[in-house]
């Protein structure tokens, strides 16, 4: 297993100008490594549907690379999206999955079939152009540059160390982060987009 912060530290060097959408408990580490916040997007709002929103964004901006850092708990809630994505074949879509094998934010209960399911295998058979699995940081580090040059949709499953939260929600320390609306406004300003 790899620490989520090491995934992001490694990925950042290969981000280029990509729009990055982090999700889940692991995803919050992205804010420590991003160097282009105006191209970071918060698309949370309904668990299991951030993946769908990321697809919509990729379809609407085919000239931009769109990178989603998904979580396995969310993906399991809407696994059909893999077929939806594969069907539309967005060449600019890079779907990373940070798989900690549990619902970390609710105390670490395992997700269904946590240790045996092969998400990259599911994505590949659903029709993704390419799919990879990583459990070792060095292997990921030597592969990510080439992966980001591939034609999408590409799926990258990464086993990450769970960061289980057991504190009641009201007592948890939350670092300030931009709201979804703020990140959308910033992206619109960055790309010169106006909504009809």
């Amino acid at each position: 297993m790899i620490r989520a912060e090491d995934v992001f530290r490694t990925f950042q060097e290969h981000r280029g100008e990509a729009i990055v959408i982090p999700t889940g408990t692991s995803g919050r580490h992205w804010m420590d490594f991003t160097t282009n916040e105006k191209r970071d997007l918060n698309l949370g709002g309904a668990m299991g549907q951030t993946t769908s929103a990321a697809l919509g964004l990729a379809l609407s901006l085919p000239q931009e690379k769109v990178v989603l850092f998904d979580s396995e708990g969310a993906l399991l809630m809407n696994m059909g999206i893999l077929a939806t994505i594969a069907g539309k074949k967005p060449k600019n879509f890079f779907h990373f999955l940070l798989d900690n094998e549990c619902y970390a934010t609710t105390g670490g209960q395992p997700v269904p079939n946590a240790e045996e399911i092969n998400y990259a295998g599911v994505a590949k058979e659903a029709g993704y152009a390419a799919a990879y699995s990583f459990t070792d940081l060095e292997e990921f580090a030597t592969s990510v540059d080439q992966i980001m040059k591939e034609t999408g949709p590409v799926f990258v499953a990464i086993k990450v160390v769970p960061e289980v939260e057991n504190e009641p929600i009201g007592r948890r320390q939350r670092r300030p982060s931009r709201s979804r609306a703020e990140t959308i406004r910033d992206l619109h300003s960055e790309l010169g987009i106006t909504v009809a």
Binding site: L41, L43, G45, S52, A53, A54, L55, G56, L57, A58, L59, S60, L61, I184, L187, H188, I193, T194, V195, A196
Partner: peptide, 8 residues
């Protein structure tokens, strides 16, 4: 929503 954000 993703499409709308992208201006569609």
């Amino acid at each position: 929503l993703g499409l709308i954000i992208g201006g569609k």
